[in-house]
Design a protein around this nucleic acid. Structure first.
Lengths: 138, 138
DNA sequence: CGGTATCCTCGCCGATACTG
DNA sequence: CAGTATCGGCGAGGATACCG
């Protein structure tokens, strides 16, 4: 490529907190992308787009997730500033999870992706059959 | 045979369903979502949005991916009808990968997500710092 | 209720070697 | 050049038990 001072520019970009680059393996954006697109991260973000949920409510909505993974996923999303965790010191304990304004922005994009897949699943299933049929005829 | 009969009825039921549900653990849309949002799937889709790439070209663009994972990722995306694989019987071998029309639709949504993260990485990094300092003050 | 701690397994994934 | 085959680690993630 044209730029010969690649490592220099990268270090500068990190220090100045410039735009990320998901193609750079060491860029923090990779980690954020991994959190957001993780198996449970996607579902949690879309679920919270509906509104505030409690832990157990989320667990029911996101069917199949274990307590551990839900907890880890929420912690990662909270660290990145996408999820707000509000714990009330009552008995029994109550914790509410909701999206931050930034979380709503990213979750909207995730939802658009998820909805496209849901709506176009029939086309995908047809493509899968055509793909396996093609193996026999070739 | 019995197996093809059964899978046929399953595919038929899927087509009749008209829409997937990512919250249903057994719905095929979960698998599609996993392919699309997988570590390398995201990067491959966005890379192919630029245009046709050869195997080695993709490997260079998607820095850090191994031959095996790139191959597996491409096969999964090809099966789902997102990627078109064209092999030419020449020496040395040449294989071109490109997006199908359906692939372009899904890749566009993935790219919007990736770009949002790249552009807003500074905000996220700030949120991370605020999160770690908040632990002490509360 | 809303977690954490611990153990353990499965399969993802990288490394290496080999093929058309 | 564009893969496949095979092995092995190691970490994601489930199961279980326990705590505030």
């Amino acid at each position: 490529m044209a730029e010969s001072e690649r490592s220099g520019r990268l270090a500068m970009a990190m220090k100045e907190q410039q735009r990320g680059d998901v193609y750079a393996p060491e860029c923090p954006s990779r980690g954020v992308l991994d959190h957001v697109t993780s198996r449970w991260g996607v579902l949690v973000l879309v679920a919270l787009l509906e509104g505030t949920h409690r832990f157990s409510s989320l667990r029911r909505k996101v069917a199949g997730v274990s307590e551990k993974m839900l907890s880890q996923t929420l912690q990662a999303l909270e660290q990145d500033g996408f999820v707000l965790r509000e714990a009330y010191p009552v008995i029994p304990p109550r914790v509410d999870y909701s999206l931050t304004p930034m979380g709503r922005e990213v979750a909207t994009r995730v939802e658009e992706l998820a909805e496209w897949i849901e709506e176009n699943l029939p086309r995908i299933m047809v493509a899968r059959e055509q793909h396996s049929t093609r193996r026999r005829s070739s």
